[in-house]
């Protein structure tokens, strides 16, 4: 069987209705039409909409960090000198490693004259496979402040592909992380289409350009949805013009709607309770299917 296609929903910023769109697409697509992949591992929210029942739960091990054995340490301070991540500090008369700052590079371990430092692997998160009434979902949770969210995203995507293959599903719908950092690049790399949700704010256009820089860098085709377009129609027109110039398809415009706000407040997707929005979302989905060449 062919590898499942990846559709990823992203936005330069959080809060631009990214999950509103991905949640709506989840509802509109059939239960066995896609695997749901929540790759927003720093702040997974999709599960709030779909009440998943967890089937499988696994630890995610991240980088190793340095740990000092004080029976051997001779307080020479070399570890502090060599560390480029400001992770070692002299506190209460002892050299101590701050696990939040340690990057796991092993320099201190190699340089310690007393061989007092070892590297220990950390459990930095968990990933889950769950059932929802809209299909199977792979999601994860990173411990607060843990790094390597990019690797966890890669893991969640990998598990989604395994699940898709097992069940003969040909589409993976990925709710991406906000921003343009490492987790986003992991989420979009290898994707067949990235849908960027943007808002007509002053910074919306600016953020959009930066996200397009990332998708361009990874050669992922992009399309745009404008959320709350009527909040500032002039900026919306600017975005439309910008999209046209760059030859990026505009899939649809979603109005600022109290119905959507109410739906979200009740943990519902707008397609469940807002008929106007539902038809806009259906239209967007149709265009996505065309762009991705799926039935």
């Amino acid at each position: 069987m062919k590898r499942a296609k990846e559709l990823v929903i992203i936005s330069g910023k959080g809060g631009t209705g990214k999950t509103t769109l991905s949640g709506s697409l989840v509802r509109l697509l059939g239960k066995n039409e896609k695997v749901i992949c929540d790759s927003d591992v720093d702040a997974a929210d999709m599960f709030l909409l779909f009440e998943p029942e967890t089937e499988r739960e696994e630890d995610f091990r991240g980088k190793s960090i340095a740990v000092i054995n004080y029976d051997k340490c001779v307080d020479c301070g070399i570890c502090q000198k060599v560390c480029r991540f400001d992770a070692v500090a002299l506190e209460d008369g002892k050299y101590q490693i701050n696990p939040y700052s340690c990057d796991g590079c092993t320099y201190c371990m190699l340089a310690c004259p007393a061989k007092a430092i070892s590297m220990e692997q950390q459990v930095v998160g968990k990933w889950f496979i769950s059932n929802t009434d809209s299909g199977s979902m792979v999601h994860a949770r990173l411990k607060p402040g843990a790094e390597n969210s990019g690797n966890l995203v890669t893991m969640v995507k990998h598990q989604s592909h395994l699940l898709a293959e097992e069940n003969g599903i040909s589409l993976i719908l990925i709710d991406g992380p906000p921003g343009i950092g490492c987790p986003v690049t992991s989420a979009i790399s290898g994707a067949n289409l990235a849908v960027i949700v943007t808002e007509p704010t002053f910074s919306g256009i600016h953020d959009l350009e930066r996200v397009l820089g990332v998708t361009g860098h990874f050669q992922v085709s992009s399309a745009i949805v404008i959320n709350k377009y009527d909040m500032n129609e002039k900026n919306s027109r600017d975005i439309e013009r910008f999209a046209k110039e760059k030859d990026i398809p505009l899939l649809g415009k979603i109005p600022l709607s109290t119905c959507v706000m109410d739906a979200i407040t009740r943990n519902k997707t707008p397609v469940d309770s807002c008929p106007d929005i539902k038809s806009i979302m259906e239209d967007i989905l149709g265009k996505i299917k065309k762009l991705m060449d799926i039935q």
Partner: peptide, 14 residues
């Protein structure tokens, strides 16, 4: 601060 709860946030809040 940056949004989220990952390393850049910790670096800022520290």
């Amino acid at each position: 601060s940056p949004p989220g709860t990952s390393c850049p946030v910790v670096e800022t809040l520290k």
